[in-house]
Amino acid sequence: MLPKELRESLKDHIANIDHPRELAVDVMFTLQDHYGYLSDEAVKEAAELLEMTPLEVDEIATFYTFVYREPVGKYVIHVCDSVICWMDGYESIKDCLCTKLAINVGETTADGLFTLLPVCCIGYCDMSPAMLINRKVYGHLNPEKIDSILEKLKAEA
């Protein structure tokens, strides 16, 4: 269940807009941040808040890349695999991440910290190869840099 405060603030927000559905993505993001991912439960809650049906929420939730309908780690790493990053070494960056995290693409580390997902061009081609972690960008990647980024995040976790 969503904490009352969060629920109320979402309700407020929704009440103050002409068309609640406009907030569908915002509400999904908020619930996702709260639960870690958009669980079935969360879809139902979002539906109720937005006066939509769970199916209607799921119709859009499953459409988008950044809505996670399955559990993910605390940090979601989106490595860019589009053409410029690919040319500048996406494969080795991905392999490096897989080795360091001991997971395959699409998986979450055993400690629940990291999930590794490839993603389409993230708009940082001038800093290729690049990745996003929880929507923050890291560019000009190389193995050492990846090491320090992961270490830092582990320490913060």
Binding site: C120, G123, C125
Partner: peptide
């Protein structure tokens, strides 16, 4: 939205 690969001018 700027999702065209290679494009980052809007950013």
């Amino acid at each position: 939205d700027e999702m065209e690969p290679g494009t980052f001018k809007d950013r």
